[in-house]
Every structure is written in C-alpha cells, then in structure tokens.
Amino acid sequence: MSPGDEHDYRGKDQGGRPDDPYSTLGGTRQTRTRLPDGDAGLPHARRPARNSRSLVTITGVVVLLIAAIAFANRGGGGGGDADAAPGAKKPGAAGSTPTAATGTKPVQGKNGTIASGFAHDAQGAQSAAANYAVALGSAEMFTKESRHRILDTVYSPAAADKLRAPQDLAYSAEFLARLGLDPDGNAPQGSTFISRTVPVGTKVLAFDDDTAKVAVWYTGLIGMSGEDSTKPVSTTWKTWTAQLSWLNGDWKVTGASESDGPAPVPGDVAASQSDAISKAVEEYGGFTYAR
C-alpha cells in the first residue's frame, strides 16, 4: 500500500523513454556531413597552395577545439566542489533544485530490504524520505511481522513504539478482508496483492543540521490482481511529508502527514488484464532512491 491510501492506515498525525525519433538516448542528435576533399574526384587536380598565415589560423582552431573537448569531458565527469562556479549551491544544500538529480552516488547500505546509511545533509534526508515512503507503501506492511520490522527501521525508536499498536489495529481482519486478503494479510491462491509506492520527486521544506522536513510526491498502486478480484489494481497520487531526525548515524522518521495530489489528468492508455499486471509486478523490481 502506498504511504496513506484511501484507508489512511497511518492516521493524520503519523506518520520511457518518450516516443521521440530524435531521442538522445544512445545517440548524440548529431549528423555527420562529409565535405569534398579539395577537388578530389577530378583527375590530376591540384590543391591551392596555403600560405603561412592560413596554416597558423588552422593550427589555432585545432588547439581551441582540443581544449574545448578536454574541458567538456572534465565537466561531464561529475567533478567536485573545485569545479563548481563561485556561489553555486552544493548538491545537499537546502533550496537546491527540487527534482533534478545531483549526480551524487546513491546510498550503499541496506537494512534488510530498506536502504540505510544516508548522507548527513539535505540530500541524504530526501533520499531517506523517498526510500522510507517506498517501504511504508509496500505489500509487506500488510503482514504483522514484516510491518513491525519496517516500523523499527523507518521510524525513531520512540515513534515506532507509539505506532506499533495503532498500526496493528488499523490492519484489522475486517480491513484486510475489504482488500481481499485473509486475516494474516495473504492473498487468495491464484491472485496477487499489489501495493507499491513510486516517488516522483522530493522537496526539502526545512533543514537544520539534525532535523529535516521533506515532502515526497508519489504515485501508488493498490489492489488485487486476479480473475475473481473485486478490487482491481488502481493508481493514486499523494504527497507524504515526513519529519526526520538524525539518530544513531542515520535519518529516522519522527512524524508524518499526508495529503491528496497533485494528480495529473488520467491518460488514455487502456487498462491491462490482471494477469499482465501480476506478471509485471513479479518481473519488475523496485529502485533505491537517491538524490
């Protein structure tokens, strides 16, 4: 389940490529024009003599081209702060471009299936919020054991202790039955329960060394894929806002809230058959989100 679908299980206070024939993917959008080599093609043609001034000019142009290529390669290699223009914002600074990638390598750590070891800066807080949104919106939240493990990983110890009992009550047998699950959160034989959160972007609302407030705009998938399903998989659009604190060397959620949207206009793509959805969920894995 996405972090807070229509059932709002956390409560209010808790927390392609485009069909472009000119795509630059795998190409350069450049065309190569072959110019005639002097009077090549004419028998016994002679090239006009070049004076020394022309030779000096050509040599200067070649040197400039080589310098330009070297500079471009240097800039494309993800240079450090020494390459940045004076006054430019660092990747982790609050107020940096909200949705553009920074080029910093993603987090390497894992706590079970959840990323960990985020950077102690605004960029790391955004990465933590995005990955935590994915964990809280996963199908693992619907079984008690894995839900407790996610809460203990994502939230601070104090927040996790407060949330554990209310969460267990929220995932009641009645609630699970409305989704087509048994009291233990398992899908019927032959059906696949789907709950995924896909972050679209993150935004730092506040940052002060050891605390951060980050909004995650996401789309979610929720429903049962199967021939007899009465709740087919549908999409939702929401914004999850997390209060984060730096505890024991990592970012942890201390509180969260959620709101609907922003939601785009639905597209005109026809809905897929349930077996295609089930197969896609089995074959396509998730991502580790990093700024």
Rank of each mutant, 00 (worst) to 15 (best):
A128L: 01
Q273M: 09
S156F: 05
Y218M: 10
D8M: 05
S52I: 05
A100Y: 07
G77R: 11
D228F: 05
Y289A: 05
D268G: 05
P266R: 09
S257Q: 08
R149V: 08
R291G: 02
R291S: 05
S272A: 11
F142S: 03
S195G: 14
T28V: 03
P18K: 03
G249P: 00
A40L: 09
G26S: 01
G201M: 03
G190L: 13
Q167D: 07
S191L: 07
A276K: 12
T59S: 13
A70Q: 12
K90V: 07
A70L: 15
P106Q: 09
D168Y: 07
T28H: 07
I277Y: 02
V200Q: 14
A187E: 09
D161W: 06
D8H: 06
Y289C: 05
P21A: 00
A170N: 07
T236M: 10
S23N: 00
V265A: 15
A206K: 13
A100I: 07
K105F: 03
F175H: 12
S172E: 11
D209G: 09
R46W: 11
S146V: 03
V214W: 04
L25Q: 01
V216I: 14
G109R: 09
A82K: 08
A276H: 04
L42N: 06
P3H: 04
G220V: 04
P21C: 00
D250A: 00
N248G: 04
G87C: 14
T31K: 07
G286K: 09
K90Y: 05
P188S: 08
G267V: 08
T239Q: 02
D209M: 06
D161V: 09
K144L: 10
E145D: 14
G92R: 04
R74T: 15
S146C: 03
A206T: 08
G76T: 13
D121E: 04
T211N: 11
S259G: 10
A45H: 03
I69Q: 14
A85E: 13
K90F: 11
P91Y: 07
K203R: 10
L151D: 00
Q189S: 15
D208N: 15
T33F: 14
G16F: 08
T24R: 03
A276M: 06
P183N: 13
G4S: 05
D19Y: 02
F71R: 15
G255W: 08
D250W: 01
Q273K: 13
T99H: 11
P262I: 14
Y132A: 02
A271V: 04
D208Y: 04
Q123G: 15
I58S: 07
T239M: 01
A212M: 05
D20I: 00
A94R: 01
T99W: 11
L136V: 08
T97H: 10
D161Q: 14
A67T: 13
P106G: 08
T113E: 09
S257R: 06
S52G: 08
L205G: 12
L55W: 08
G4P: 00
G92H: 07
G26A: 02
D13Y: 06
A173H: 11
H7N: 11
G80N: 11
V61F: 14
D81H: 02
K110R: 15
V134W: 01
T104N: 02
M224G: 01
W237F: 15
T143K: 12
A173F: 09
A68L: 15
L176N: 12
S195H: 02
V214A: 05
R147N: 08
V134L: 03
S96Q: 06
I150N: 03
Q108V: 12
T241N: 05
T288R: 13
M1I: 08
A133E: 12
